[in-house]
Amino acid sequence: MGAAPASRDVTSYGMGLAAPLALFFLLFFVAPLLQLLWLSLHNDTAGLHWGLGQYLHFLTDPFSLGVLGSTLLLGAEVTAVCLVLGFPIAWLYQRVGPKLQTIIILIVLLPLLTSVVVRTFAWIVILGRQGIINATLQSLGVIDTPLKLLYTQFGVVIALAQVQMPLMTLPLITALGRIDPNFDDASCSLGAGSWRTFFRIVLPLSLPGVIAGCTLTYAAAITAFITQSLIGGGQMLFMPMYLYQQASTLQNWPFASAISIIFLLAVLAVVSVFTTLGRMSRGYGGA
C-alpha cells in the first residue's frame, strides 16, 4: 500500500529496505522456531509420531515442574533485588551534578558491556570458601569455618542481581528524568512529606520505567545460563541448564524442544503481563 506515496514522500524510505532483514529473520529465526514447535509435538526422536507426549511428560513430572517453578521464582527474586537497589541509583542520578551523573552512568554501564563470564567469575572470587566475605568474617572472628555462599540460592540471586542491574537502572533513569520536578515541589508545599511524595507521586509517575526495567531484568535473569550454572553449581537446576542437558547430553531433542517452547511461553506470558501493566500505568500516570 505505502509504495507509491512513500516514494514521493522524501522524509521516509520504502518498506523494501526492510526486506533483506525480514527474509533473514524468516529463514534463520522464524523457521527454526517453527521447526522447534513441530518437533516438540512429536512423541519420538525421529519426528514420525504426532502427539502431545512431550508436553504431558513435562506437565505431569514433578521434577520438571519444580525446575520451571524455581526458575520463575528466581527471576522474581532477582527483579525485586534489582528494583530495590536500582531505584535509589536512578533517584541519586537526578540529584547530582553533570560530572557525577556521567560517573554514575559509566559505573552502571560498564558491567553491561563486560563479559558475563568475567562478572560471574568475580562472584566466585567473592563468595568462595577463601573469598572476600569469608576471609573478612574469619579475620574479624565472626565465624570459625567458612560459610557456604557459593552454590546457594542467595549466591545466585545476588550475583544475578549485579549482572542484570544495568537493565533495571537505565530505564529508571530515563523515566525519572521525564518527571516534571514541579510535581515534587507542589507535593511538598502542599504539606506531604518526602516519603509520601515519593510513594504517591514519584513512584507512580515512574511506573513505565519500572515496568520496562522489570521486563528486561526478569527476561534476562531467567535465561542467564552462565551465572546460574557457575554460581548455582550442580545442585540447583534451572530451565536453561535443564534444556541444555536434555538437548546436548541426552540428545533428547523432542523433549528439549518441548522444554524450549514451555520456557518461551513462560517468558512471553511474563512479558505480556508486564506490557499490560505498562499500558495501564501510562493511563494512571496521566490521570
Binding site: P32, Q35, L36, T223, M239, P240, L243, S260, I261, L264
Partner: peptide, 9 residues
C-alpha cells in the same frame, strides 16, 4: 526470547 531456545532451534 530465551537465546538458548533459539540456539537449539
Amino acid at each position: 526470547l530465551p537465546a538458548l531456545a533459539f540456539g537449539l532451534a
